[in-house]
Design a binder for these strands. Structure first.
Lengths: 203, 203
DNA sequence: GTCTATAGATTGATAGAC
DNA sequence: GTCTATCAATCTATAGAC
């Protein structure tokens, strides 16, 4: 994680490997993506990137960390774009629509990855890091709900419920290859959140 | 470990192969499951079942057909159990809870399979057959809604929306390994459907 | 129909020259 | 740091004896 040599530019090789792996894990899945695939996509000889990553799991963990950075940057950008909690939530929910075609074709890159990792036998640490990506989104959503007056418990509950609806919408839209379905579900999801009231969810 | 004796009634090699493949595709995924895995689980020598199935895709399609039969039988049983549309819907939504532990551990066998097949490069016919499993559920749900007075269009829409919520609930519960989360989401999902009104969804 | 042996390709990973 | 050559293991699939 820590780059001990600040002088070296983010190695173009390492960077290209990571970006290639991230895209391929999304399009093909983790198991189905071979080193050869990554090497071809990154334009780098096969054996070379064992210098950067010792195992395939190491690449996976780096890709997960990359997704975390991506998410946090996107959420930060939303916060800078508008101060209104509801508008922030709306933009977050509409985020999968920005790459609608890819997401409908290959599913949510986070959801499909987590689903795959739960099956394979990786060190628990690996898929927990992947699940941590959901927490980034859930925590952020819950924080916006608290800005709207929700207390912590119900906010967390509704955030998870919204995340589940979003994941389900992407999965079904992906299954049917229907971008319109995803857009409609995102719109309905936002409408649904807007009409929720805290007391309805309090224990 | 669960050392099951191959002395069960399902003596047919083909039947044992199919059941082993169905379970392994759920637990490990399609790509990650090798012929060796299936052979071991079915208690049958590797090379033998090329007599029954010529390719791995052929096994996959047979497993999908098996799921379709399973679903239709389960739905038929629900219909025989109760004539009330709402109670039928409730039982259908609670169906994933019957194997809660397995579904939370490995995800929905249909949803995770469809997600995986969308990535791999199979003949279009294959993943469309898999997506057809969703149609079995969506059509059945829509029929129950029509029994409640909904017209065809809105019924289909709400059925797909409910299916999306169910899939999302299983995916998130699987990610967090939380059976309670799945149970809570199923309960809320049923409550949510019960309070929907057709006119709210009409165009 | 059942099973063994094995082909032919690809996998993740290593060693070492430059 | 970059790249070539290659390992041992495993993959899907085939051929053919019983």
């Amino acid at each position: 994680m820590n780059e001990t040599k600040p002088t070296s530019i983010r190695g173009s090789s390492r960077e290209r490997i990571l970006e290639a792996a991230r895209a391929l894990f999304h399009r093909q899945g983790f198991e189905a993506t071979s080193f050869s695939d990554i090497a071809r996509e990154a334009g780098i000889p096969r054996g070379n990137f064992y210098y950067h990553f010792k195992t395939k799991d190491e690449i996976l963990r780096a890709v997960i960390a990359r997704w975390r950075t991506r998410l946090e940057e996107a959420l930060g950008q939303i916060e800078r774009a508008t101060p209104q909690p509801l508008e922030r939530i709306h933009r977050m929910l509409a985020y999968p629509l920005e790459e609608s075609e890819t997401n409908v074709r290959y599913g949510c890159p986070l959801g499909s990855l987590v689903y795959e990792l739960r099956k394979a036998e990786h060190p628990p640490q690996v898929w927990q890091e992947a699940v941590g990506l959901f927490d980034v989104l859930a925590d952020w959503l819950a924080a916006r709900l608290r800005e709207l007056g929700w207390s912590a418990g119900p906010a967390r509950l509704l955030a998870l419920r919204a995340l589940a609806r979003l994941q389900g919408a992407i999965l079904l839209a992906s299954a049917y290859g229907d971008q319109g379905l995803l857009a409609a579900e995102v719109a309905d999801l936002y409408d649904w959140i807007r009409h929720q009231r805290p007391q309805e969810n309090a224990p």
